[in-house]
Amino acid sequence: MVREDTVSSRVTHAKQDLSAREVAVGLALVAAITFALLVFQEPLVHDSLHNLRHTGGIVCH
């Protein structure tokens, strides 16, 4: 299989390779992580991560 390796060939390859169920699980995981990041604004979590936010330089206040 001497085929040129490009970004679009990777996309094609992933489409063939991954089942609909795996894609659904992956998207659910993305949704879960996004939700978790939103929950980080809740005061208890926010204050618990205070040192991390400053060490990581993610300071919005």
């Binding site: 618990s48 991560l49 040192n51 206040h61």
Partner: peptide, 22 residues
């Protein structure tokens, strides 16, 4: 903590959760 109001959690919790978060 945070400079605007008193922290809702103890320093020990903040240390530990920040390590886990890292």
């Amino acid at each position: 903590h945070g400079g605007h109001e008193a922290a809702a959690v103890s320093a020990a919790t903040t240390n530990l959760v920040s390590i886990g978060g890292g």
